[in-house]
Simulated scan of single mutants.
Amino acid sequence: MSTPEARLINLGITLPEPMKAVANYVPFVISGQHLFVSGQVSSTPDGLVTGRLGETMDLPAGQEAARRCGINLLAQCKAALGDLSKVSRVVKLGGFVNAHPLFTDIPQVINGCSDLMVDVFGDAGRHARSAVACPTLPLGVAVEIDGIFEITN
């Protein structure tokens, strides 16, 4: 069975340096057997992915923005744990989409991140989830996603 890191390589994904907190919070907290990762915004090595779904972005662009959030979540997990194999389950994702009021494909946008979690962790990547639209997000980003992960020592 391949490891999460091996699956990332097969997917052609290199994890970026984890993003630093931009306000009064920490990027992650470990409590008991759970890792709580603060909201990760849509960004690439080239900068923030900004825009509003249904206005300046279409569904595929939103899904890619959510995938970028997932990559950033994984970067925080790696920073917290040192090894993604210590993630035994993706428990829950909370997705927020900067969307025009008439844009309703919010769940499909967040699938960009959910699909990545399943690709990386297999069945252990299947999770509970919320997906909501917002009139704006910090820094004008298109998507923000936080996560709760069950971990092993």
Rank of each mutant, 00 (worst) to 15 (best):
L15H: 04
C113G: 01
L74G: 01
I30V: 15
L139A: 14
A131F: 06
L102S: 15
G39S: 14
A6R: 11
G47T: 02
S42N: 04
R52C: 14
T104H: 13
T136L: 11
Q40M: 13
P135D: 13
G95Q: 01
Y25M: 04
F103H: 07
G39E: 09
G125A: 09
M1V: 05
A142K: 04
N153A: 14
P4V: 05
S43R: 10
T44R: 02
P107F: 10
H100C: 03
L139R: 12
T44P: 00
A6W: 03
I71G: 01
T56W: 06
F103T: 03
S38F: 10
G54L: 02
G112P: 03
G39A: 15
S31I: 14
K78P: 01
T3S: 14
E150Q: 15
P4L: 07
S2H: 05
V91P: 00
I145D: 03
L74I: 04
A99D: 01
V26L: 00
E64T: 10
L53W: 04
D123C: 07
L84H: 08
Q76I: 08
P4R: 05
L11V: 08
R52K: 15
D115G: 02
G47S: 02
V29Y: 00
G112H: 05
G140I: 07
V49K: 01
A79I: 04
A124D: 15
S85T: 13
P135R: 08
